[in-house]
Design a protein around this nucleic acid. Sequence first.
DNA 1: AATGAATGAGCCTTCATTCAT
DNA 2: CATGAATGAAGGCTCATTCAT
Lengths: 200, 200, 200, 200
Amino acid sequence: MNDKFFDLKKEKQDKMINGAMQVFACKGYKNASTDDMVKVAGVSKGLWFHYFVNKMGLYSFVSDYCVKYLNMELQVNLMSKPSDYFDILYIIENTKVQISKIYPFAPLMIQSMLDEKDEEIISVAKDMIEPYKDKVREAFENFNESELSSDVSKDMLDMTVGYTLKGIMEKAYNNGVFDAENYLSEVKAYFDMMRKIVYA
Amino acid sequence: MNDKFFDLKKEKQDKMINGAMQVFACKGYKNASTDDMVKVAGVSKGLWFHYFVNKMGLYSFVSDYCVKYLNMELQVNLMSKPSDYFDILYIIENTKVQISKIYPFAPLMIQSMLDEKDEEIISVAKDMIEPYKDKVREAFENFNESELSSDVSKDMLDMTVGYTLKGIMEKAYNNGVFDAENYLSEVKAYFDMMRKIVYA
Amino acid sequence: MNDKFFDLKKEKQDKMINGAMQVFACKGYKNASTDDMVKVAGVSKGLWFHYFVNKMGLYSFVSDYCVKYLNMELQVNLMSKPSDYFDILYIIENTKVQISKIYPFAPLMIQSMLDEKDEEIISVAKDMIEPYKDKVREAFENFNESELSSDVSKDMLDMTVGYTLKGIMEKAYNNGVFDAENYLSEVKAYFDMMRKIVYA
Amino acid sequence: MNDKFFDLKKEKQDKMINGAMQVFACKGYKNASTDDMVKVAGVSKGLWFHYFVNKMGLYSFVSDYCVKYLNMELQVNLMSKPSDYFDILYIIENTKVQISKIYPFAPLMIQSMLDEKDEEIISVAKDMIEPYKDKVREAFENFNESELSSDVSKDMLDMTVGYTLKGIMEKAYNNGVFDAENYLSEVKAYFDMMRKIVYA
DNA sequence: AATGAATGAGCCTTCATTCAT
DNA sequence: CATGAATGAAGGCTCATTCAT
């Protein structure tokens, strides 16, 4: 990418980042078209290439940016080192909601990176999401697996919770904008239920 | 569509249905290309349009066919009117595995219809999946919600189980073919765990 | 390339070959546009890519075809094994004029391959022209250098004659079509003069 | 063009002239990109258009400048009014080498003007080179054609020598910079040979 | 019925040109 | 005067769709 992007007014930077994030997150890499971004961000076609060389460069930048920004906020919000399974996760999801105030499609972008299936971009997406996964793993170091009911394995819990959060999030974006409040309240209700049934 | 499609040899019909289902289910509506279907089904490009008018007509037919076929089998398999939450679901998933013997991508097609995000096709996909959702609702009429722990709401259980099954299924297709055995065993393990924690 | 190109009617093949040859020869690889070929050959844009994958594939095919066709005719026309410097060259140039009846831009294409400067295509052009250069070398095996005046070196003669033929040819194409007759008569006049001054 | 260009420091003027000349001469009008000139001359993109309106204006200016500068030097160097065919030409070529010390791509620019094939610029190029052709014609007024062998016509000699010089020059630029010494020595060798065979 | 040659709209990308600073 | 951010038309290429055979 062209580092002069950062010399632009923050406002315009964010307009472009948000535009790209929206289109990539909602449509996936392959179906995301520059024309869509032009419409959404109100920035001419040529400019995207001026700063990001090509479509992949743009994806690469935006996904990286998204993860870095989220991890920064997580760093702060997880400082209390919570140890309860659902406390940890709630802080993480809450942090996503926080950053959605500035980057409304960042939470969906994170999900779409995990789901990306296009061969051309899949390895980039996997690479870029890794630091986030690391951060989550780190957060769970304080969790003590023995607190779980003997009927429940952490792996399976991770799986079902992970897929469920994904589903709730996609629903929260269903009308094209992120309904943050609704997302958090659904997550909370879900966690409240799970809490009652998975612990020893 | 052109009803003469049904005058074709059953074998050829199925080759076309499977080809379309595979490409639509794996790539989604927008990224599914007619060239892929030509390659996969070994049927010339013109023929698809001869019978199905256009891409949307083809999607419409295949998704409808898929749901109808599944519902037919469910009709039979659910005749015993099971009442246990996980018994019902297991029969449903098992039925999907059954039909995968003839239409290997049908289970994924069902999922992909629920996930479809392309604006052009989304309403078609939602319409076509509805009869399947009805059938599932019908199956749960014999289920008595009061069997669940008071900590657990059926809606939330539906949600988490639904998303989790989706996740397990996508994993089972990860190498391009459906690993039916693996799918069923993962589903079973998951249901076994859930059974232990959600009942009163 | 797609070998089914050769199943097309010869007439259409030649229309496409001539169209591509004209645009490549007149404008060079980089400046040759598919739109120009569409206009010149009256064949839609998609078809070029259907048969030749991409622009480089098309260049590669056309330049190869051009050289192979010329060499085939040279094989016949040089059978008499001429030994005089200018006889050899005249037969070669005359052969180019011959093939220009069917492929009017073939002679210019040969020249343009030798002149190609675009980095992307230069190695392809050099590879493709090589068999023609071999054929010319072969034709000169019957030439006895000692026939030249001691004042004249063959290398320098090759150089000045080569550049001059190039110049005459470019002039013969100046109005967009090949003035074959004029080309041959200018070449003949030039050779007549040179003959008188370079021999011992 | 904007005449205030001449108010710039001579150094900057030459940087721009040389940059444009290099890119135009090496790549031809169409393939010459403003970005290349920006890189080569280290002068911002806007400035080229500020002084020269558009690409054609820039070409027009640079080609004109090149010819005027060459003609000025020829005026001086041809003052001795040489009458020998090859003496005249050698002085001309030597003058090109001279001006290459200040405008390294001027000799190639002169050649490229004669070769320009792009429809958009061809008439401009032809117009601009005309004064140089006039100057050459003028230089040959002192040449007595009867000195030539009766076998040799001046027109044909002009032609072959012209094309050959063009070829030698292109070779002398082959690695991107002008190898002036090599150019002159090749020209000399060529003239020495020709001298021996074309005179009466 | 069946094929695949043929078409052209649309997408990614480049580049001359404009314009605010 | 100088800069380079910004624009949009044009070029290479893909792909749903049409149509002659």
